[in-house]
Design a protein around this nucleic acid. Structure first.
Lengths: 203, 203
DNA sequence: TACTTTTTGTATCGTTCGACACAAAATCCT
DNA sequence: AGGATTTTGTGTCGAACGATACAAAAAGTA
């Protein structure tokens, strides 16, 4: 972001994005508080002075890691929700994509943002930022439901806010499930069950 | 539990249960890692030697706090689930009781066990214990559904495991919601929506 | 080549962490 | 009363924490 790309001086010996990616993984796995500078330096393959020079502090690195994390998965998640023809299919795609990605062996299980619920506590500034980040999911679902009403595939008397909160709750619960070892298939079962709550009957 | 109640020696100057209760609150609010010995001593109103003498260590105090927490809320939760006439009403009571208690202003929002997902990471021994603790909820719901089948209020071809996981997922998601500031009423809306997924149609 | 600028590795800062040593204080037992 | 036993408060331990000071190293610029 506000990164100086000066041409003068000794060039940086590491790939900043790769280092950020490594840091993101560690934070994702262990949470902010439980992750030490040692953990970070080791995972990123750099010394602490380089870390401070490139990212400012542990806290700033964490916020950047959150953004980095969101920049990877969020677009697909948004797309799943938005590009489906109906609101119901959109939400279903949203849940099923979550089911698949939250238990993906390629990364730590569960959503980094959702699981940061507790870990970021005690640092004050970070907690608010995380809460705000989570509320974006809620707003996103709400907007999709509203669109569904406007486009006629969802009844006008649908309780949009309650329904949106329900689906977000399910998705956040899936993060806990994933961390506890639930498989993608099991999470997909949860997604399918949740769709049974869609207003206007099953089938 | 394995507490020596020796009559000899200088008597303890604090109420052990009250101290445990205070410690539980702090752990509940901040998580294991983010809670320091200083936080605990201050909240419990005792010095660290007294804490170690009475509870062994920070880690042992935490496990005892988890049990203490469960001993308070779990019986009511179990009762809500078990004493209802049908499986559906049982699960509904389970969810609605959760909705009420998870956003209760009397204590920190959210379930202590569920929210310990991340916070306890990095200590190894505690993570497993917490995961195990969470799985008990799943087993409890499964058992209630099985009973419903046996008693005829639930179809024999119900996917018990998937349905149970769904409801547990919803309940765990509610903990995150509660921590993010959702009200009891909003959580109850989530519970109501979840009941819409009950197999065999709504109403 | 000499100077400026930035990064690197080493080494360490002051703080806080969890945990405990120690002796004074408080109770029971004889 | 006097010993036995346990808890209390004070003080501090070594380790780990996040964060830097510092000088050597590596680049561009003149």
């Amino acid at each position: 972001m506000s990164e100086k790309t000066s041409t003068r001086g000794r060039p940086r010996a590491f790939d900043r994005t790769a280092a950020l990616d490594a840091a993101t993984r560690v934070f994702w796995q262990k949470g902010f508080t439980a992750t030490s500078m040692n953990d970070l330096c080791e995972a990123m393959g750099i010394g602490s002075p380089s870390l401070y020079a490139a990212f400012g502090s542990k806290e700033q690195l964490y916020t950047e890691a959150i953004r980095h994390y969101g920049a990877q998965g969020a677009p697909q998640l948004c797309d799943a929700l938005e590009s489906a023809p109906t609101a119901k299919l959109g939400v279903e795609a949203f849940l099923r994509f979550s089911a698949r990605s939250l238990a993906c062996p390629a990364g730590p299980s569960g959503c980094m943002v959702v699981l940061s619920a507790v870990a970021s506590e005690g640092v004050a500034g970070l907690a608010d930022m995380i809460v705000e980040e989570r509320k974006r999911s809620l707003k996103m679902i709400e907007a999709r439901l509203q669109r569904g009403i406007k486009e006629g595939d969802l009844s006008r008397e649908t309780k949009v806010k309650a329904l949106a909160r329900f689906f977000v709750t399910v998705q956040q619960g899936m993060s806990i499930q994933a961390r506890d070892g639930a498989s993608s298939k099991e999470l997909d079962g949860v997604a399918a069950m949740a769709m049974g709550a869609w207003p206007g009957g099953r089938r």
